[in-house]
Amino acid sequence: MGAPTEPVEDKLVALASIAAELHSVMGVVWSVSLAGKNAKVISAQAGDKGLGFRPITESIDEISQQAIRGVDDISSEALRLSKIAVHEQRSIDAYQRFNSVIKKNVDAKYIKTILPAVNKVEQSMRASISEFKKSMNNLTLLLETMDQCMLTARAVASVSRIVTSSGQEYRDKLTVVSNDLDKAARYIKQRLLNSYRHLNNVNAQR
């Protein structure tokens, strides 16, 4: 007897799960963005004393904006992929049922009249399969970009800690921001990992 295997997640469930993972990320990204903007204000208020913090606060703001766009893009692509998958599934279902009609009714007087519909469904099925592949590649790229963005976020958080350790009156506030950024980046990384796992389940079924 072989080792028990985990049941394979349904393709449509897997795609919906990616959208759900990313949905949970959006709130975190927005709060980081807010904190980033807050950090910019703090450094601006500091005048000349805050000059040293500005590159860091600019970076935090830039990363959070990039993350918001990334999450949006990934969610849209996952939704598009779900729609293509549903369309593909419907075409495959129709194609299989039409073919079973042909196989079981070879003697039907008008059996050939179904062939144009079969061809059309087959074309639609192939178009969906090809579109699905393209969209899968896009989604993989978007996830990779987001992953890279989170690596950068963690690096910025580390640098930020070093810079703030040499700062004075704004140190506490900026430390909170950089800690939040690091925490958010770790959280998002975990969600991205989960998304990759769901994506692998989709790939396993193709």
């Binding site: 049922r97 039409f98 079973s100 009609v101 079981k104 009714n105 039907a108 007087k109 008008y110 059996i111 009249t113 179904i114 144009p116 519909a117």
Partner: peptide
């Protein structure tokens, strides 16, 4: 019943 229906229909009428 779609497939058996379509199969049965094609004995009596063309699709179009």
């Amino acid at each position: 019943v779609f497939a058996p229906m379509l199969g049965a229909i094609l004995h009596h009428a063309k699709v179009d």
